[in-house]
């Protein structure tokens, strides 16, 4: 299950961003996954729920947006929806099409929680 490796990579990237912004933690991670990405959304969600605590983000939620498969025909120019194993023009049935959506595996955005004021001052060191 390569989703675990992908999830680990996602959490590493999230860690770098949290540190760069001097944030406290992560409220939400928003990713976009297409059906042709090779990533199974349920397996990624499962991997995330297992791995988030060890990565230091026990409260982070993962939001997975899925994108539709869409192809544009090189022959007739039509844009149409398609299925994973039938990437064909909906109008002329040609297989000479370009995929224009459906293979994404993208970290879109993060919602970070900021350092609470009570923890960010010099008082932290005393406590």
């Amino acid at each position: 299950m390569h989703e675990l490796a992908i999830c680990q990579s996602l959490l590493d990237q999230a860690r770098q961003i949290v540190d760069a912004h001097d944030a406290n933690g992560i409220e939400r991670i928003i990713v976009q996954i297409g059906p042709l990405s090779g990533v199974e959304a349920p397996l990624l969600a499962q991997a995330f729920s297992i791995a988030r605590s060890a990565a230091g983000f026990p409260n982070a939620e993962l939001e997975i947006e899925t994108s539709p498969i869409q192809v544009r025909c090189q022959q007739c120019g039509t844009t149409s929806a398609a299925r994973v194993n039938a990437l064909l023009c909906g109008s002329c049935q040609s297989w000479k099409v370009d995929l224009i959506s459906g293979d994404e595996m993208i970290l879109k955005s993060l919602i970070l929680t900021e350092q609470p004021a009570s923890l960010s001052g010099p008082l932290t060191r005393a406590g």
Binding site: I6, S9, Q13, L107, L112
Partner: peptide, 26 residues
């Protein structure tokens, strides 16, 4: 952008737009 782009702030949270591959490091 390795550190992402800050798109807006509201009380206690920051939203950061990243747009990179899940396998960026790989």
């Amino acid at each position: 952008a390795d550190q992402g782009r800050l798109s807006h702030t509201k009380d206690g949270t920051k939203s950061i737009e990243v747009l990179s591959s899940l396998l960026h490091e790989n």
